[in-house]
Amino acid sequence: QVNQQQLQQLMDMGFTREHAMEALLNTSTMEQATEYLLTHP
């Protein structure tokens, strides 16, 4: 289960819902999730 607010923040940054969910499931903080998305295009 992912934090919906964090998911929305990542989608607002331009990431897809699927990619943002993957990042949130594989990390524990927003900072890590953002870094994950930038390093796993």
Rank of each mutant, 00 (worst) to 15 (best):
E31H: 05
N3C: 13
T16I: 10
E22T: 09
Y36C: 10
S28N: 12
L25R: 14
R17V: 04
G14H: 05
L10C: 00
D12M: 07
D12G: 13
Q32K: 14
A20P: 00
T29Q: 06
M21D: 13
Q8C: 13
E35W: 14
L25H: 13
R17L: 02
R17P: 02
T39N: 09
Q6N: 13
Q8T: 14
Q32M: 06
H40D: 13
H19C: 12
T16H: 09
Q9C: 00
L24W: 07
V2R: 10
T34Y: 06
L38P: 10
N26A: 10
N26T: 14
M30V: 12
F15S: 07
H19V: 14
N3R: 01
Q32E: 06
N26P: 02
E18L: 06
Q4M: 08
Q5S: 12
G14K: 07
Q9D: 12
N3E: 03
Q1R: 09
E31G: 09
T34S: 10
T29H: 06
A23I: 00
A33Y: 00
M30N: 06
E18N: 04
E31K: 14
M30T: 10
L25G: 13
A23C: 01
E22K: 07
E18S: 05
L7F: 03
T16V: 10
L7C: 03
E31D: 12
L10D: 01
Q4F: 05
H19I: 09
A23T: 01
T27Y: 05
M21S: 14
R17H: 06
L25C: 10
Q4W: 00
L25W: 04
D12L: 08
Q32D: 08
Q6P: 03
Q9R: 06
F15C: 12
Q5L: 04
V2M: 09
L24Q: 06
T16C: 13
Y36V: 08
A20T: 12
S28K: 15
Q6Y: 14
M21R: 14
Y36G: 07
Q5F: 05
E18R: 06
T27A: 11
L24A: 07
E35A: 14
M13P: 00
A20W: 00
F15Y: 14
G14P: 00
E22Y: 06
Q6I: 09
Q8S: 12
P41F: 15
L37G: 10
E31Q: 11
A23D: 01
Q6E: 08
A20E: 03
Q6K: 05
L10R: 01
L24P: 02
Q9E: 13
M11T: 10
A23K: 04
Q6H: 07
E18W: 01
E35M: 07
L24M: 08
H40F: 09
T27I: 01
M21I: 05
E35S: 13
M11D: 01
T39I: 04
M21W: 08
T29A: 05
T27C: 09
Y36A: 11
Q5N: 12
Q1G: 12
P41H: 10
T29G: 09
T34P: 03
Y36L: 09
M30E: 09
L7S: 03
Q32P: 02
T27F: 09
Q8W: 05
M21Q: 15
L7P: 01
H19K: 14
M13Y: 01
D12H: 10
Q8R: 11
Q4N: 11
Q4K: 14
G14F: 00
N3M: 06
T39M: 10
L37F: 06
L25T: 15
Q4E: 09
Q4V: 04
M21A: 14
M21P: 01
Y36H: 12
L25M: 14
Q4P: 03
S28A: 11
Y36M: 11
Q5K: 13
H19Q: 13
E22V: 09
T29K: 14
Y36W: 13
F15E: 13
L25F: 07
E35H: 09
Q6W: 02
L7Y: 02
L10T: 02
F15N: 14
L38Y: 03
L37P: 10
H19F: 09
Q8Y: 07
T39K: 15
L10M: 08
A20Y: 00
V2Y: 03
Q5Y: 06
P41A: 06
Q6D: 15
L10G: 01
T16M: 11
M11R: 04
G14A: 02
L25E: 15
Q1A: 04
T16Q: 10
E35L: 07
S28L: 05
L38C: 10
